[in-house]
Write a protein that binds this DNA or RNA. Sequence first.
DNA 1: GTCTATAGCACGATAGAC
DNA 2: GTCTATCGTGCTATAGAC
Lengths: 236, 236
Amino acid sequence: MPRRAKASRPAKAPGAPAEAADGSAEPVPHGRGRKIAAKRTAILGAGLKLFSRYGLHGATMEEIAKAAHVSKTNLFYYFASKEEIYVAILRQLLESWFAPLDGLKPEADPVAAIGAYIRQKVIFSRDNPDASRLFCLEIVQGAPLLGPELRGVLKAVVDAKAGVIRAWVAAGKLAAVDPHHLLFSIWATTQHYADFAAQIDAVIGRDLTDETYLEATIANIQRIVLDGVRPRGAGG
Amino acid sequence: MPRRAKASRPAKAPGAPAEAADGSAEPVPHGRGRKIAAKRTAILGAGLKLFSRYGLHGATMEEIAKAAHVSKTNLFYYFASKEEIYVAILRQLLESWFAPLDGLKPEADPVAAIGAYIRQKVIFSRDNPDASRLFCLEIVQGAPLLGPELRGVLKAVVDAKAGVIRAWVAAGKLAAVDPHHLLFSIWATTQHYADFAAQIDAVIGRDLTDETYLEATIANIQRIVLDGVRPRGAGG
DNA sequence: GTCTATAGCACGATAGAC
DNA sequence: GTCTATCGTGCTATAGAC
């Protein structure tokens, strides 16, 4: 029983539909399957909440079971191990994490598209703070379990979008900025408000659930990323 | 033995010089005290490395002992508990984390000062990636142990610097930007390169130890924060 | 101050009845 | 599929000799 496993065994659990260890939205369960899919979803939700707060090793199966309104034994009926729950959650996250990138299309207006992308990311951070933070936890610890997906699907998506940005620059529709650095800066600033919410709350006593602060945050990130702060008469 | 304690008992360990549970630089140990101070430092260093990779609960006392070249029993001679090591490390980090803020003085040139600050933060991220990441881990999990310090000393420092930035704006030396959002954006972008190094490496296969990439990163953050990306002829 | 030995228990995972 | 009971062990922390 290695404490820090490298990869998950293929050990299939019931209700896992061949590939997507998800249980929320893929093949649409029918009739009897609905109940077990609902339980899997509840477990993943409970795991998300607890893993994001206490980490993989800090959260316990007993707590997850309780939060999901399931007995501890039952947990092991649906998932073979703690790590299996963890990676199932992470895989789900990754998709929703880069989905907003779809908006960066070649034919779109760069500034408008980037501005919209920033808004979407901040809104996502507000609506899914736990997701944002769990993703952060995994990456910060070196992405031991998500690494392969990052090098695979994420890299592919990012490379494609970098091409779009590069085309915008070449067309003179955007200042000469490195595409990857631009994306990293957007990710950094938008997720910061979810991931470092504890720090922000400690310093200024606000968070994104405050509608006014949410809009101010979006505006300021858009401003900093899109306009800069160098003085030139009328500010903003 | 509560698994997730709220605060550390005052239980003093030998070699802890009254206040600073640090052991590296404060009262300058003399003669015999040097050896035990060196061991404490080694333990804190080992803890930093392991906690930042595996989290508070993921790292084990046995591993820390081995990494610090100390027997496991000896570890408990120098520190009363695992958490005591953890908080001692965090307290150290906080100081070095906001020390670079000193450069933001009212009499300085805003753009130059902010540019220099960005450089310092990125350099710090390169030289202390583990520190950056451990700090991130703690905040992301809600800062359960560092919360009070954030609301105290960090808030005080930030409020002071926000005043400086506000004065710059009032004097017309800087565009009208919210001071807190500006600071948050700088923290977000600079630390991103240390904290999300695994992701960046997965996507573009580089990290800050590459001197060329380091300089490109600094330049791009400075550019994005200071200049923005809106098209206006010659880019950068 | 450093060691060997071990207490003590929380927690991941399993057995097996129903 | 869900339960009760329990195993095995990894891990924090202590005891006590030297």
